[in-house]
Design a protein around this nucleic acid. Structure first.
Lengths: 224, 224
DNA sequence: GGGATAAGTGTATCCATGACACCTTCACTT
DNA sequence: AAGTGAAGGTGTCATGGATACACTTATCCC
């Protein structure tokens, strides 16, 4: 399809970037790839790339994530959060990137490079390596949005398997907020919300076994 | 500048739209223009248009607002809030619009059509006329964002002149939230925030004169 | 059985919010 | 000058949510 647009209108490259998060060993990690192409060859960057013809923005984000990191994500774990379009942000020309926030469920650890990628790996989200383009800014804003969502969506459940213990859930909150929480107040608050139901089982390990919970039927959760 | 992009990458039209709000007669109004071009000729729409070459997103938003409605806005009254890029949203082809929220200071009433515009006028934001493209959706999300910002930025001050009375401020809140507030609780809450200082003067009119306030030095306010 | 480890539990305080009714000040009218 | 209308301004009590804080319980392993 050809556009009939005013002559002064900008034709721009349209891209998506994905700030994908997971919790590993009680610490919030961000998913980064090492670029295999110019510019910024061999620099770490957020997964992302150009939107294809006839492709929706969120589809492009999911595809890039799949191609570059072998992660298959459900659409409900993805949310657009800001668009970066400053003129000098990409040396190839005017490229506008619609940045997305992704929440990766527990167990998503296996990542691998792809055609446009040397490697993919997890890095501590609060202390990432130097990043290509303006991706450090994008990552910072993504973390802020993640913390906001924690408050009034029950985002943390997305990071956990179907059943989980309260200390595990608290660990997720602490990892995202990057600060310690009081155990009793946390339990009180979460249980009062009525979004958790005890599964009846318990999980053994070191110390006293913990009660297992699952999300209650009909509980709102996740991104918007 | 020519882009060297992968062949399957989409070249898209990049546009901005502006949902601009003001309070008139105690009611939240949105600024709309009547289109003078196809598609959607003579349909009401949000001010907006294509980003020019070498122009930043927020500059384009301010320019379109100026060209289509003769309103000169300060950058701090503008905030990008969501990007609309669904495939079928514009019959001319793939056009991605970065939507902006604008808060118009008190007294901004004079609007006029421009080159690409038949008329510009204010409409009740909570009950707009039928709109072109997906602009009804954009407007709805803009109002939601506006209400959110009211809570933890002190957005309402932006709608008022330098000095104002507490009932006026309350009226702004009520217009945006579209519901009545208790006078005493409102005053208590606002004064407790410490962002207002009495100017010492009073404003006469019908009834008892009201104390005039101004924003306190260093008070956080406005959009982000 | 004793120790290490982590889970689980209750109370008192404080602050923010919301419901609620009357008095004060001024302008205008008669 | 007295009365009326119209809007501004003020205080208290009850409630609920958030915070600070320390000990007991259950299991594993030696």
């Amino acid at each position: 399809m050809t556009l009939s647009l005013p002559p002064q209108a900008t034709q721009v490259g349209l891209a998506v970037d994905v700030a994908a998060f997971a919790i590993h060993e009680g610490c919030l990690h961000a998913l980064l790839i090492e670029r295999a192409t110019l510019p910024h060859l061999q620099t770490w960057a957020l997964p992302g790339g150009f939107v294809h013809v006839g492709e929706e923005l969120h589809e492009a984000a999911l595809r890039e994530l799949r191609d570059e990191t072998s992660i298959e994500l459900e659409p409900r774990h993805l949310e657009q959060f800001y668009t970066f379009g400053a003129i000098g942000r990409d040396p190839r020309g005017r490229i506008v990137s619609v940045a997305h926030l992704a929440v990766l469920p527990h167990g998503t650890v296996h990542v691998m490079g792809g055609a446009t990628t040397l490697h993919a790996d997890w890095f501590p989200a609060h202390a990432p390596p130097p990043l290509a383009f303006d991706h450090a800014v994008i990552l910072g804003r993504a973390i802020k949005r993640l913390q906001l969502r924690l408050e009034y969506a029950n985002l943390a459940l997305e990071f956990l398997p179907e059943t989980f213990t309260l200390p595990e859930l608290q660990g997720v909150h602490e990892a995202i907020l990057d600060k310690a929480l009081d155990k009793r107040n946390f339990r009180k608050r979460l249980l009062a919300q009525g979004i958790l139901t005890p599964s009846g089982e318990r999980r053994s390990g070191v110390g006293r076994p913990a009660q297992l919970y699952r999300r209650a039927k009909g509980a709102r959760t996740g991104l918007l």
